[in-house]
Design a protein around this nucleic acid. Structure first.
Length: 622
DNA sequence: CGGGGCCCTG
DNA sequence: CAGGGCCCCG
């Protein structure tokens, strides 16, 4: 570039100390942008396959086939059963398990020892037996649920004389404990002596069982083992049945919801504008082709095996190491939880108390964009609102939680009674009210999508920038000092962009640059003061003070390996400042402008992995 | 006119 | 880091 335009500019700027570099840093054609965005959305939102795949996982299980989803759910349920893990939030499953345990506890001594039974369990037991026998006749085949059997055994095996004698004694005892005056004290004594607080008749039978043990110990033990196995099988069968029923209901409700949803967005289809929503839809339609094309690209030579080595030092040719394999991890198993989580109004049998809050959360944030206020209608069923610190986790929590829910849900309570983190993200939105103009509101509405998958996408679209977005932006600064707004949209694809968000992101990078240049000037002057005379003496290494200052600012946790290229750029910048100051150019109020023009050309491509909404996890924790 | 950039301030 | 002012550019 000839200097004349910059000098003309400079003369104007002398009025005010301004050093705008005036470089237009964007902008591809709209089609280019859409093509890029398509790839982005595809890789980010549906890394694992086609539209059909997703739909399959949502709906297919309801046909009674053992889909992956059902298996996962069953696996969870079984793990609960095995661990007898109480589940905060009283999910249906936990309730079911609890009921089963109570049933068994009423008749099975070992369960009583855990304190689940109560007085009057005899009546309870019979009720359970008669009730459940209506549902499944086999319920009462269990030896523990069949008093006649043990009674028969005892009668057959005990000596007649002893039995009669014993019966008389026990009759007396029974009569005493049935009298109201001693009931209370008797029960208390029982609790002190033995944890199992059983009814008089139950203890009567207990005595008889103990009596027969010496003779029939082995047989009884085998019966016990087999019976417990049988019982577990039965429980599992019932749980499975229950889950299948629930899946059916869920499918019906989802279809119902989608019917309403589709009819709603058909109105939006008429505008025909290329809104971001429609763009997202097209994104999903075209993503498979993009995926193939991406794989055909040569700039993708890095094989998956190189991922560990290239994870941090992603300079040069290894930019695109974020392969399909890795993309696959981003949203591997989150399809199921999110429609329920975000649109929690889907009623679930036995868990109705959590269903009203979420639409309120969404609506509230759409309207007044309150930053951290709890939802207006928040029911007491979700008292554990995320503390302000969890702003850090808005999006990360989403992915984490969904991973948890698939693999080890017991570590993280994600029952419907808990506020879904997607909604947390919404409620913690940082958008300000003045940003919610009419155009933007259409994007905020959860019902503004066109198809089902934009719906799922929007489940992940944040309406504000979280601290993790800031962290990500800082890491991106190691690669690009002057990102275009379109680039930011591409790399923050989980954010619903509007003017405010764009401005905020641009402002962030402006602030980053400001700090960066201040540091550069500061250390350049310091070097001059230290007697440095040649730029050759100026180099930036990972243990130099300037680098530490920059690293502290953009990579505070020091959990990201700063790319080598950034060191080069920083060194160039430092030398530019050094030379300018040495040459006395700093007398010119806009002397930095020339430096800015140099530096803005040194941006390198940000690695593909930064397009993933989960990139922080993948970058920092893998 | 609006987007983007820098500077200054809090 | 955000707000506001000012400027340049398309």
């Amino acid at each position: 570039m000839p200097d004349h335009d910059s000098t003309a500019l400079l003369s104007r700027q002398t009025k005010r100390r301004r050093v705008d570099i005036g470089v237009k840093r964007t902008v591809g054609t709209a089609s280019a942008f859409f093509a890029k965005a398509r790839a982005t959305f595809f890789s980010a939102m549906n890394p694992q396959g086609s539209e059909q795949d997703v739909e399959y996982s949502v709906v297919q299980h309801a046909d009674g086939e053992k889909s992956n989803v059902l298996r996962k759910l069953l696996k969870r349920a079984n793990s609960y059963e095995d661990a007898m893990m109480p589940f905060p939030g009283a999910t249906i499953i936990s309730q079911l398990l609890k009921n089963n345990m109570n049933k068994n506890g009423g008749t099975e001594p070992s369960f009583q020892a855990s304190g689940l039974s109560s007085t009057g369990s005899e009546v309870h037991q019979e009720d359970v037996c008669s009730n459940s026998s209506r549902d499944s006749p086999q319920e009462c085949l269990s030896p523990f649920g069949r008093p006649t059997m043990s009674q028969f055994d005892v009668d057959r095996l005990c000596d007649e004389h002893l039995r009669a004698k014993r019966a008389r004694v026990e009759n007396i005892i029974r009569g005493m404990s049935h009298s109201p005056s001693v009931t209370l004290r008797g029960n208390e004594n029982e609790r002190e002596i033995a944890p199992q607080s059983v009814s008089p008749r139950e203890s009567y039978r207990e005595n008889k069982r103990k009596q027969k043990l010496p003779q029939q110990q082995q047989q009884s033990f085998q019966q016990l083992v087999s019976a417990r196995k049988e019982q577990k099988r039965e429980e599992r069968r019932q749980l499975k049945q229950q889950l299948e029923d629930m899946q059916k209901q869920l499918r019906q409700l989802q279809e119902k919801f989608y019917q309403i949803y589709d009819s709603t967005d058909s109105e939006n289809d008429e505008d025909g504008n290329l809104s971001e929503d429609s763009m997202r839809s097209e994104t999903m339609d075209a993503r498979a082709g993009d995926s193939v094309g991406r794989e055909d690209h040569p700039p993708d030579v890095a094989p998956p095996l190189q991922i560990p080595q290239a994870r941090f030092a992603v300079n040069g040719e290894n930019h695109n190491f974020h392969t399909a394999n890795q993309r696959l991890q981003c949203f591997g198993d989150v399809i199921i939880p999110n429609p329920l989580d975000t649109f929690g109004s889907v009623p679930m049998p036995g868990a109705t108390d959590q269903t009203e809050a979420l639409p309120l959360v969404v609506r509230k944030n759409s309207s007044d964009q309150s930053a951290s206020a709890p939802p207006a209608g928040a029911p007491p069923a979700s008292p554990q609102r995320a503390p302000p610190e969890s702003l850090d986790l808005t999006r990360e929590t989403t992915s984490l939680r969904t991973k948890m829910s698939s693999h080890h849900m017991n570590h993280h309570p994600c029952s419907p009674a808990h506020p879904p983190s997607a909604a947390e993200g919404l409620s913690l939105s940082l958008i300000k009210s003045e940003c919610g103009d009419l155009q933007d509101m259409s994007e905020i509405s959860p019902y503004s999508g066109k198809k089902r998958f934009p719906l799922l996408i929007q489940s992940y679209m944040q309406e504000g920038l979280s601290p993790n977005h800031l962290k990500k932006a800082k890491l991106m600064f190691f690669y690009t000092r002057y990102p275009s707004s379109n680039m930011l949209k591409t790399y923050f694809s989980d954010v619903k962009f509007n003017r405010c968000i764009t401005s905020q992101l641009i402002k962030w990078f402006s602030n980053f640059r400001e700090f960066y240049y201040i540091q550069m000037e500061k250390y350049a002057r310091q070097a001059i003061n230290d007697g440095v005379t040649s730029t050759e003496e100026l180099s930036i290494t990972r243990d130099c003070e300037l680098y530490r200052a920059l690293n502290m600012h953009y990579n505070k946790a020091n959990d990201f390996e700063v790319p080598e290229r950034f060191l080069e750029v920083a060194q160039i910048t430092l030398r530019e400042f050094f030379n300018a100051i040495i040459a006395g150019k700093d007398v010119d109020p806009s002397w930095k402008k020339a430096i800015y023009k140099v530096i803005c050309k040194l941006d390198s491509e940000v690695p593909e992995i930064f397009k993933s909404p989960n990139c922080l996890q993948e970058l920092l924790h893998e």
